[in-house]
Each structure stands twice: as structure tokens, then as C-alpha cells.
Amino acid sequence: MSAVPAFSQTLRRHQLDLARGQTSVLQVNVGLLCNQACRHCHLEAGPARPEVMDAATMEQVLAYARRGRFQMLDITGGAPELNPNLELLLEGACALLPRVILRANLTALASDQHRGLIPVLAKNKVVITGSFPSLNAQQAEAQRGPGVFERSLECLGLLNQAGYGQPGSGLELDLVVNPAGAFQAPEQAATAKRFRQALASRWGLSFNQLHVFANVPLGRFKTWLLASEGYEPYVRRLAEGFNPCALAGVMCRGLVSVAWDGYLHDCDFNQAAGLPLGGRRTHISEMEGPPPQGQPIAVGEHCYTCAAGAGFT
């Protein structure tokens, strides 16, 4: 069996370039500290990680959001709730941008220490995107750790009580499903329908949208794939699913990703892979505005994840 071709080679074979369109989304990784150590995490976030964005860098993020006239701020981690300065970023961002998203793992937010953040999020109409990989506790916890399933359900209950995911509240609660292993992401519309029915009938819970994302072969997931001799077959399946049409909608064309230390990447996956924006290490304070249209996007083997099937948003 021949080797999987490099992603750049596949682009050339299809006579395609991967370059930036208009960049309107600023994604901020506020740190790799997390209360969980999920086995699919491309950033290898966890309780022992010291990398946390400081208040000065957050101020630089807000200043960049202002001068770059971004339309959306997408806050991710680690568990962003564990950053002690998160409220500073949230309040500042909500005053500046039409849409602010917080990617939550649904356990940090439900903890006694952080559940006080829920009214702050609601007041500012922050969109919450929560990880909820499976309706099956065993499968969810195989990915995310013991006890996570029950605590995630508890968090969804708290968010529903605060108005999130309820019709007419204007408070958006979205779920993210990642496969709990070396298999493909299921079809999104059918999965959303199934999760909506099951969450309502079994637990009386509701949400707005559900997004299905494939696992990216980087970080802890890559380590597991290599150890289980599944790396090559997994990447091969992704490569066989290469869809030239999916490239038009990949997130890196319209997003710039800021790492915890203020350095920039084309996306969160390139951050994990150590690929800097524009081919050189650039700090957020050096940027006058969004990266220019047409700027080439750094690619690697992991890019097959977003270019397979219907793509990745």
C-alpha cells in the first residue's frame, strides 16, 4: 500500500491553493490549563499545564479585536473558565464584537468554583459551545474521563435553567460531538435530530445547534493513534475523503488564532502543530489588522481532517 501523500501534494494534484479569504473571526486560546485531560485533545490540555494567557495579553487581544474590526471572538482553551482573567476578556469583547463564543467542556462551568460565571455569560449573551460527544456515558467518558457524563448533564441543566437553549431567550447553547475513537464523524443533521430527541426525552434538556467535528490527528489523539497502530489507517481514510469543495469553507480561510502567549496561527490545529501564521512567529501586538486576503495558509497532514467530506467549521 502506498504512503499517504502530503497535503500540499494533494492540493497541487487538484491544482488548488489554500489561501486566506476575508478574516472576520478572532479565535483566542486563553490557555492549556484544563480540569480534564481528554484523550482526543490536539493541544494536550490538562490540569498540569502551566500555559495561561495573562491579563496584559488579553488587553492586547481586545486592542487587536478593535483595530481589526472582527465580527466574532471565539474563546477556547484548555478550559477557558480556569483562566482567572476570563471575565476581563468577556466583558471587553462583548462591548466590541457582535458575537462572542465560549467553548466550554461542560464540567468546569458546572463546578462550584465557576458556575457563578453563568449569569455573566447570560447577561452578555455569550454563545456557549459545549462538548458532548455521546449519549452513552461509557463512550463519553472513554474520551473525556470518569464522571464527565453526569457532570455535563448537570451543566446543561444549569444552562437551560439560565435560559440557554430555550426558545426566545436569545441565549444560544450549541453542542459539539467528536467521535470517541478512530472513526469518522457521523452525519450532522441526523445526529442533531437524535441528540435532540434523546436529551429531551431522557433528561428534559434542550440545545440550539449541534456541530459534528472529526478528531484531528495531533497531540494526545495522535499519540494514541500511533500507540494503537491506527495512525496511518486513520489519516489514509481522511485523505481518501478529500473533498476539493470543502476547502472553500474551511475555518482557516476566515479566522486567525491567537495562542495563550499572544502569537498567531492560521487555526487552533496549526497552533498545536507549531505552524505560525504567514510562516514566521508573529505577535498580536505587531498586527495592524486581520491577515491579508490571499496570504497562503500553512498546511500539514492534519489538514486532511478539515478537507474530508463536508469539511470543518
Binding site: S134, N136, Q138, Q139, P179, A180, P186
Partner: peptide, 13 residues
């Protein structure tokens, strides 16, 4: 087995 997992089924189902 692969197809069931790819389509979102879990081991219990």
C-alpha cells in the same frame, strides 16, 4: 463495526 461507529452508534447499541 467500523460503519456503525462512523455513523454515530455506540458499543451499547
Amino acid at each position: 463495526t467500523q460503519a456503525c461507529l462512523d455513523k454515530g452508534s455506540n458499543l451499547a447499541e
